[in-house]
């Protein structure tokens, strides 16, 4: 008697909760979304909303201190009007070229380090990995300033060369141009490229290398025929990791770039700041992001196509 009464009492209160729990257990879809929810909220708040705002703003107009909220494509027309305002497209193109150079130099400097770490270091790999990150314990800005000291008119290199008597006048091509920006960015991003390349090298089955040697390859041939092709995923990842953020970098060109070394990021910064034209700045940002996206997609498709072709034929 008692137990029956209790059961009928308990059921209504537990019903809703239980029904939800049942749904949660039974439906993988519901469970999936429930698990995804925190990340999804963060992504919406931190990525989707700001990007949406940026895109929306790019269709507005700045009239002195006021924003005209009416929809217009003028900002974009201004960017792509090459005759009147070549600056945006020229800077975008230059930034992309400089970033490609940075990416190239980063990969070729990071690769030997990653190779050393993967194949030559037998013990204490973690210590070596930590050592590689040591420069990152200081701020990015400080590292950029350090390069200014190294490359400067009276910097380490110039004064060193003068004191050695190799040159009379300080070399002027070292600082405040594209070269100095590329050097500084290369140094700043090298460590980011080491890790993905290291991981892809570390993953290579050592018996594949022995097999290549066994089949007649010298160590050099083996590198180009087996090691390098198998480390391509790491190289591609490293390349993207460096290329994407460096296109929009404005700190390094600002400090060591001078007037000839400025990049698209500097324009965006000044449009949002001194020039007080946030809508145009938004539009330039959107164009830059679109350009990067297009380039990266084209690149990935090219790699993917080659793989597909390989698998099909």
């Amino acid at each position: 008697m008692v137990s029956v009464a209790e059961k009928t009492l308990v059921q209504p209160t537990g019903g809703l909760r239980r029904r939800f729990m049942t749904l949660l257990y039974r439906s993988e879809g519901v469970r999936g979304y429930a698990l995804l929810l925190p990340t999804l909220l963060v992504m919406i708040a931190m990525l989707v909303v700001p990007l949406g705002t940026l895109a929306l703003q790019s269709f507005w107009t700045q009239i002195y201190f006021k924003l005209d909220h009416s929809f217009t494509l003028n900002n974009y027309l201004q960017i792509f009007d090459f005759k009147q305002n070549p600056i945006y497209l020229v800077l975008l193109f230059r930034s992309i070229i400089m970033s490609l150079m940075v990416t190239f130099f980063v990969v070729i400097t990071a690769y030997p380090m990653a190779y050393f770490l993967a194949f030559k270091v037998q013990r204490h790999k973690l210590v070596w990995l930590i050592l590689i990150t040591v420069p990152f314990w200081t701020s990015y800005l400080l590292r950029v300033f350090a390069w200014k000291i190294i490359l400067g008119f009276q910097g380490v290199i110039n004064s060193g060369l003068i004191s050695l008597g190799l040159i009379d006048q300080p070399l002027e091509f070292l600082l405040y141009n594209q070269t100095s920006v590329v050097i500084t960015l290369t140094h700043a991003w090298a460590a980011f490229a080491i890790l993905p390349i290291y991981v892809s090298l570390e993953k290579i089955d050592r018996s594949l290398l022995e097999a290549a040697t066994d089949l007649g390859d010298t160590p050099r041939e083996r590198f180009w025929r087996v090691t390098f092709p198998l480390s391509m995923p790491g190289v591609v990842a490293a390349g993207l990791l460096v290329f994407i953020p460096t296109v929009g970098d404005y700190v390094t060109p600002n400090v060591v770039g001078g007037t000839s070394g400025i990049m698209i990021g500097n324009i965006i910064q000044s449009l949002f700041g001194k020039a007080n034209n946030a809508p145009l700045g938004s539009a330039v940002s959107i164009v830059m992001m679109a350009a990067i996206t297009l380039l990266v997609c084209a690149f990935l498709m090219l790699i993917g196509r080659r793989r597909w072709k390989h698998a099909e034929t």
Binding site: D205, S207, L208, E210, A211, A212, T213, D214, L215, G216, D217, T218, V226, P229, L230
Partner: peptide, 18 residues
């Protein structure tokens, strides 16, 4: 190894995945 008149079949086969 690359100059020897021997060839090896590895335990893991070592087929080049690429």
């Amino acid at each position: 190894p690359h100059l020897r008149p021997t060839n090896m079949v590895f335990q893991s086969y070592a087929i080049f995945p690429h």
